[in-house]
């Protein structure tokens, strides 16, 4: 192989997306992953990379409100979409009730899975506001945590469901 081989990657394409309420436009290589775009181009390093092959869920973000694995998405696939990352959850220094529940129930240790876990829980609780333990376990089975043994994560989601229900009721 020679150095002047054409990789076909330097043809950049323009993408526009709304991330955490702010619209961004950038020229990116077609091969750039969404997670790298968020972390490197936008500096939103709260979204983590644990495997880059779609198994661990650390890179979970919400695309149009649905959880996706941003390591399996090219940035150009997200053109024209609205994305939410962990950085948007706490408002005015006030933790979101799910974040609060993780804090109170010791639902995190090293914290590396936490952003993905919290976003997955957020999307899940919107679909199923009063889940059983089993439903929580199945819903979060796409997000690996190496530290907690999941016990306190499940408890956190249970507590968050209760807190959100209480909030909705008031």
């Amino acid at each position: 192989m020679s150095a002047d081989v054409d990789w076909g990657v330097d043809v950049k394409r323009s993408v526009t997306m709304t991330v955490n309420g702010t619209q961004h436009t950038a020229d990116v290589e077609p091969r750039l992953n969404l997670v790298d775009f968020l972390r490197i181009d936008l500096g939103l390093t709260g979204t983590h990379i644990g495997c880059e092959h779609g198994v661990c869920g650390a890179c979970t973000v919400l695309l149009e409100g649905e959880p996706i694995r941003s390591c399996l998405f090219f940035a150009i696939q997200a053109d024209g979409t609205t994305i939410t990352t962990i950085e948007a959850l706490a408002v005015d220094d006030q933790l979101h009730p799910i974040q609060e529940a993780f804090h109170e129930n010791h639902g995190l240790q090293c914290g590396f899975c936490t952003p993905g876990m919290v976003l997955a829980a957020l999307a899940f609780l919107e679909d199923n506001p009063s889940p059983s333990e089993r439903e929580i376990r199945v819903a979060l089975a796409g997000n690996l945590c190496m530290c907690t043994g999941y016990v306190n994560i499940v408890k956190s989601v249970q507590a968050a469901a209760a807190a959100l229900a209480g909030k909705a009721g008031t």
């Binding site: 979204t47 974040q99 914290g111 590396f112």
Partner: peptide, 9 residues
């Protein structure tokens, strides 16, 4: 926790 929960790890 706070930093970790808000993506500021």
């Amino acid at each position: 926790d706070r930093a970790l929960l808000t993506g500021l790890g």
